[in-house]
């Protein structure tokens, strides 16, 4: 599954560069949303046909929020350590990590500070999404199903959710959705907040 995903994304990127005309760029947003809507419909069917799942989630209770919390801490710690090792400002690195894979928003927010930082946020977070898409089937199989949510970050509720749902089960798909919603709502607050310390 991972290899198929990798090849498909790579083929898409290559045909975007070499085959399709640039004028197509304007309508891509619509097609991505349409494709996503269709997939999320299937994820919904999957969740709905597993009866009793909401009860299970309710039994987990507030502990479900530990997942987005740990993903948030891990993401920020990860870029901060990598940044320090590469001789970058710790605060700026932390702010890039707080994009949690939501590349458009974190890049816009950080390009207010410098074009370089905005671009870095963009590249980091778009790489995160692609690596998540490719690695999640492996992580679900060899590390753990709940851990498979971690790479996705904020995209655990939309673009990466279909891959998580397919690699795990409907139960994890709901936790993934909740995780994505919580992380996505943290990005617009956390990125500017961290930059206050720079």
């Amino acid at each position: 599954m991972s290899l198929t995903i990798l090849i498909t994304v790579a083929l898409g990127i290559l045909s975007g560069i070499f085959i399709f005309p640039e004028s197509l760029g304007d309508s891509m947003g619509f097609w991505i949303s349409a494709g996503l809507a269709l997939l999320l419909f299937f994820v919904g069917i999957d969740i709905g046909s597993n009866r009793g799942i909401l009860g299970k989630i309710r039994r987990i209770g507030f502990k479900v929020f530990l997942v987005p919390l740990m993903v948030a801490l891990g993401s920020i710690l990860g870029t901060t350590l990598a940044g320090i090792l590469m001789g970058m400002s710790a605060v700026e690195s932390a702010a890039v990590g707080a994009g949690f894979g939501w590349y458009s928003l974190s890049a816009i927010e950080l390009s207010k500070h410098s074009a370089y930082l905005g671009t870095l946020a963009f590249v980091t977070n778009i790489s995160r999404e692609i690596i998540a898409l490719v690695s999640i089937p492996f992580i679900a199989k060899y590390i753990g199903k709940l851990e498979a949510i971690a790479p996705a970050g904020a995209t655990a509720m939309d673009t990466v959710l279909p891959v998580i749902s397919r690699s795990t089960n409907a139960h994890i798909a709901i936790i993934s959705f909740i995780t994505g919603v919580v992380l996505s709502s943290m990005v617009p607050v956390l990125v500017p907040l961290i930059m206050l310390f720079s």
Partner: peptide, 14 residues
Amino acid sequence: LLLLLFIMGVSIGL
């Protein structure tokens, strides 16, 4: 899913 991923790739490549 594959179709969506392809489209996402195209939008990156464009």
